[in-house]
Design a protein around this nucleic acid. Sequence first.
DNA 1: ATCGAGCTGCGTACACCGTACACATCAATG
DNA 2: CATTGATGTGTACGGTGTACGCAGCTCGAT
Lengths: 266, 266
Amino acid sequence: MAQVDEKPNDPAGKSAGKPVDDSADQQAQAPQVSIWERMEKPAKAPRTTLTHAAIAAAAVEIADAEALDAVSMRKLSGHLGVTTMALYRYVANKEELFELMLDEAYTKYRNPAVPDETWRDVLRVHAHQMRGIAMRHPWTVELALRSVVSITPRVMASVERALAAFDGLGLDIDAMADGQYAVMAYVRGAITDEVGHLELLKNRQWQSRDDLREAYAPHMKWLMETGRYPVYHRYGLGAVRKDDTEGRFEFGLDCVLDGIAAKLGI
Amino acid sequence: MAQVDEKPNDPAGKSAGKPVDDSADQQAQAPQVSIWERMEKPAKAPRTTLTHAAIAAAAVEIADAEALDAVSMRKLSGHLGVTTMALYRYVANKEELFELMLDEAYTKYRNPAVPDETWRDVLRVHAHQMRGIAMRHPWTVELALRSVVSITPRVMASVERALAAFDGLGLDIDAMADGQYAVMAYVRGAITDEVGHLELLKNRQWQSRDDLREAYAPHMKWLMETGRYPVYHRYGLGAVRKDDTEGRFEFGLDCVLDGIAAKLGI
DNA sequence: ATCGAGCTGCGTACACCGTACACATCAATG
DNA sequence: CATTGATGTGTACGGTGTACGCAGCTCGAT
């Protein structure tokens, strides 16, 4: 990833090209148009062996089963029964593949309008949908950070839904954005934490959080014996709701929603 | 990363080892003890060429100047004037290097006790410190996600401080943890978003958020012309506080703190 | 029916990456 | 001074993303 960024990235045939025949530089000519725009016009003679949808589905499958790191162009092409470089006809680079995957994951987002819904209802569903998607596809969390260009159509649709929840309440658009941002930020942070723990369990093939605690017990014991973390120590010894992740998520979400209601006067 | 996880990871000299001479398996014998514990006892004959501190500092320098991906064992060793494998005397693997880096970044965390501080004061400082560190060392955000083992001594100290802010208010330890979690989650999500944008600016060498908007204008225009995001469209056209990231962060933080106060009755 | 054009997939090659393993060297202790 | 264990070196392996040149397919126009 890094080495590419540092290169001039001008594939020679552009600035020092031949006078007329420009058809030589077939690929990688700095698309400029997003993959979504390109996907709209299916070219005139599309072969059927590969499609954006198939690529996205296969990539998601790998990421779900193993991890985001396991999604390599080689392995993906293998699963699709195709050479590695064939993929580059459909995605300009791996980042675009990630965009495809993220959008694919967000096909599961459901937040339908219901008759007497309040803004809180909508945002609560929104939060739980994001959390649900993150739980089912843990790699989405990592992705949101890696490719900041995470404004795929379906992700945008979910943002639109959240934003629209504040519509018609007499707020100006900046306040609406603030509210949406607060919820989004909290949810993102919470699921980052949750998914992190989940992934740790999966990677180490532990069955429960008890296994995790057991594995880290020596390290924790040593840390606590320094005596520098007395309150955390008390937490370690005395907390009874350590594994109620759902409840913890709900608590924080309520805090944010209450705060929004108070500060925005809605 | 992935390929290592799938290997048996037993370096031969352990289960099928020679009868007596076990000194052969010098490195990578599944440390079990954390790097922090190992660092305490500086061995009997320490050579001075390399230290954990120097390694951490150099790695941080690279990550700050370029990016987390730019921190490779080869480049790092080059900066230190040492062979690549020399590093593995101090760090069992790259993950441990990341731990070192995270702890190094958190040397900047400042949250001293002040006379009449309230829990809100402490947590507000806590939040701003986390944000400040993330702004100065954007890679910490990515790190918190990659190596979930982010319980370095100094990170733990910051958590302890936040947790202790709720002490003596008549809350049980679970409630205190809930409060700390809500703040942590919000801050983490918010800085993930902020740092993401910041990194995008840096990578593309844009000067301001206007450059970003300009670059994405075609894509946005296309997205908006689908007509599926009317409220977001209104935001794009009419918002006036789009670049007030500090204010947005503060708003969300206030929401969370207000919510905590309300729900915990403090 | 044929032909060319352009989309599609293939294969090779390059420069990186993390790290396992065997060897050389150094510093302090017996 | 010799020994011993910690420390640094060198090479090698299997993986990565992707640039580039080429071959085959499919279609619209002839």
